[in-house]
Amino acid sequence: MPVRKDESGRRTVAAEVEVPGTPEDVWRAIATGPGVTSWFVPTRVEERVGGTVATNFGPGMESLATITAWEPPRRFTADSPEAMGPGSPTIATEWTVEARAGGTCIVRVVHAWFAETDDWDAQFEGHEHGWQAFFHILRLYLSHFRGRSGANLQLMGVAPEPTVQAGWAELTGRLGLAGAEPGQRVQSASDAPALAGQVERVGPDEHPELLLRLDAPVPGIAHLFALPMGGQVYLPVRLYLFREEPTAAAAREEPAWQAWMARHFPMPGQPG
């Protein structure tokens, strides 16, 4: 997602994906709280100009934006002050949905900001891999769980080794998912939380990730990846659970995952 610049100082980065569904289907997935929560992170959306979009990336990491344009089911925009940290520029984000022949749509997101220096460009360019990963989840959600609201579990651990590849090997090895290949059916190890389903995607070595379409413990999606940051390797595990009572399913599964992550991949300051 290279940064584009113009003479006014306006800078933009953009990403897009083709997904199945009508514009109305896709709009529900990208512009409503339950829809976004079902493939991204827990989100609340006040569906109007002046409304708030609140996205929760974890404890103490809630991002707030104000909706500046609302044109369902085609387009909305929102402004986020200091979204990249104190002193960072306000980001204007535009989401658009464009219908295509054959029952698909193009979803496009554009981030724009004004700056006189390149100080923030690298962080925005880093959005590319993040959006690519989440767009794979969005496509999977719209292909198999369209219109359903899911429970969203976000878990985090820190690898005992400081390299991405070693941390990833430790996580997938303990889960019994090492060496998984696209199209393969997998099942977690007996001493790990229950996880079973089909492998939909395996990331490259430099950006390791695993995307599963689950049939156990309940139908859903699992997304695991390794993230180097601050000299450590973080190991996020995201579960999107869909069934008649997704909240109850999440309440049942979360304690086992929390205990397992704390035992094998404790966060700094957390007892192992």
Rank of each mutant, 00 (worst) to 15 (best):
P81C: 11
G269A: 11
P228Q: 08
A222N: 13
V13I: 12
F124Q: 03
F57V: 10
V97W: 01
F242I: 04
T12E: 15
A250C: 08
F134W: 14
L235E: 10
A92N: 08
G85H: 06
Y234E: 11
D79G: 03
R174D: 03
A251E: 14
E94L: 02
V45T: 01
G157F: 09
M1D: 12
T163K: 11
A248R: 12
V186N: 07
E82P: 02
L140W: 04
R238D: 04
M61I: 02
G33Y: 04
L153D: 09
E128Y: 04
R108P: 02
G87L: 08
A15D: 15
V158I: 11
P2V: 07
P236L: 03
A169S: 13
T117E: 12
S38F: 09
I221H: 06
E206F: 11
L227S: 09
T66P: 08
P2I: 07
M61K: 15
E18H: 07
E7W: 06
D25C: 05
E46P: 05
I30D: 01
P204V: 01
I67C: 02
V26S: 03
E206K: 08
F76V: 00
G220L: 14
N56E: 14
I91W: 09
A15P: 05
L214F: 06
R44A: 07
E47C: 15
M84Y: 13
F76W: 01
A169Y: 01
A31F: 00
C105A: 10
E128R: 07
V109L: 04
G60N: 05
R44S: 14
E46I: 00
G272W: 03
M156D: 07
L212F: 08
A262W: 06
C105T: 05
R243G: 10
Q154I: 12
A78F: 02
Q154G: 14
A194R: 15
G147D: 12
D25E: 09
D119W: 06
P208E: 01
G272C: 05
R238G: 09
A248G: 15
A101C: 02
I67D: 01
P219V: 12
M1G: 15
A15T: 14
A262Y: 10
V110D: 01
R74D: 01
T43H: 04
R213V: 01
V13P: 01
V202R: 14
W27T: 05
G183Q: 05
A222K: 11
W131S: 14
V199H: 05
T247W: 12
V237A: 07
G203C: 04
W260E: 13
E24R: 07
K5I: 01
R108T: 00
V26E: 00
F114T: 15
D215T: 15
N152C: 09
E125W: 09
P266H: 05
L140I: 08
G231A: 09
D191N: 15
V45D: 04
V41R: 07
P72V: 00
G51C: 07
A180C: 06
A151R: 10
G21R: 02
Q165K: 13
R100W: 06
P72I: 00
E71A: 00
V186S: 11
P89N: 09
Q187C: 06
A262P: 06
W120K: 00
T163S: 14
P271M: 11
A29H: 10
A115N: 05
A31C: 06
P208Q: 01
V17I: 13
L239N: 07
E254I: 11
P266N: 05
